[in-house]
Computed example of a mutant assay.
Amino acid sequence: MLEMLAQEKISRLEDPSNTTFYPSFFILTGIPGTETTYKWISVVLCSCYIISLLGNMLLLAVISVSSALHKPMFIFLSLLSSNDALLSTSVTPKLLCILWFNNNHISFEACLLQMFFIHNFTAMESGLLLSMAFDRFIAICQPLRYGSIMTNNVIIQLPTVLMVRNVALVASVVILVRKFPAFKTNVVVNAYCEHMAIAKLAAADIRVNSALGLTVAFTILGIDLLFILVSYLAIFHAVFSLPSKDARLKTFNTCIPHICVFLTFHGLALFTFLTHRYGKGIPSSVHTISGYMYLLLPPVLNPLVYGMKTRLIRVQVREVFCTYQKTFRN
């Protein structure tokens, strides 16, 4: 690490008149203004990370081994669980290193890789929530055609198309950052490598980056959110026409937690993207904390919401645990 710092200083001293340089690493500041509470913040983050991993891995395992859950909705949910585990892993370990060991250096290439993974998994989260909303829309509004629409091909093609879309759009943003000729500083006022947080450090015109970043955000998050809202409006319209009060209550019980999940995720994500560009008066700690909330809160909440509120999953979890208990006793 000392050698890296020395090389950085030498590269800048070679031309004293040059105030820009190309960094070999970045310095992440963590959560500015909260240094005295790092100990407690790290406990909360580590607990959330463990809960996220355990909850999502349990959900993924139960769906994998239970044939009763091999249905489109639960296949999408298993993909969401995998994505949640990867999303939280792409950001939390490095933050804990900063909070526990003050290890706030990250190489240039590792920073770009983290940026790609964070934005790609975020985009995939949005796409999978859209897939689940589409599944619920077909199941409730077109129940007689559900089997003919939600075929195995659709279940495979839908996530594949979303993944290709996300990788193409996010990769274009990362490539633009990689092509910056020089940077004014390598100190990132954030705890992870977010696109605009890095772009603002460049000694270059970043209008293209800002425009492309907004285009990617609204192409993915904005369009997905629009279609999710349309799906649930159609669902509620269909629910209100149901003659049975019990059927209406059952549908509302199923849909309301899902709505809370996607509103939390999309609301925090859009707030973070927009404030990074236009929220000049907002403290940097608010930027960082809001960013972590949209990255860490959904992976923690999703297993609880979908696992505890879905009766079939609860039944299968009990059956799996009972089976393992009997096997262990024998």
Rank of each mutant, 00 (worst) to 15 (best):
E125Y: 02
I106N: 07
L226V: 10
A197R: 10
E109N: 04
L225A: 09
A199P: 02
S47R: 05
A182P: 01
L5V: 01
R165F: 06
Y49D: 12
M150W: 02
L2T: 04
V173N: 04
L54Q: 00
R277T: 03
N18C: 15
I206R: 07
L112P: 02
A85H: 05
C193T: 06
V91E: 05
L53R: 04
C97M: 15
L95Q: 08
I206W: 03
M57R: 02
M132P: 04
M124A: 01
M4V: 06
T185E: 14
T323F: 14
A182W: 03
L233Y: 09
M293D: 00
V239M: 12
E35A: 08
F218H: 13
P283W: 08
S131M: 15
S88R: 02
V216W: 00
S241T: 09
A61T: 08
H258G: 07
V188I: 15
H237A: 04
L295T: 02
G222M: 05
P243F: 06
L158Y: 11
S47V: 07
P159Y: 06
V305G: 00
Y22T: 03
F101R: 13
L28Y: 12
V216H: 08
M73I: 08
G279E: 10
P257R: 01
E3P: 00
M293G: 01
A68W: 00
D15M: 08
I235C: 13
F137V: 01
F26Y: 14
L162A: 12
P72Q: 07
L201K: 05
K280A: 10
L45F: 13
V154G: 02
Y292A: 05
F101Q: 14
I206P: 00
D135T: 06
K326H: 13
L69S: 10
G291T: 07
A269P: 04
A269D: 05
R165D: 09
E125G: 04
Y22K: 09
S210N: 12
H276W: 11
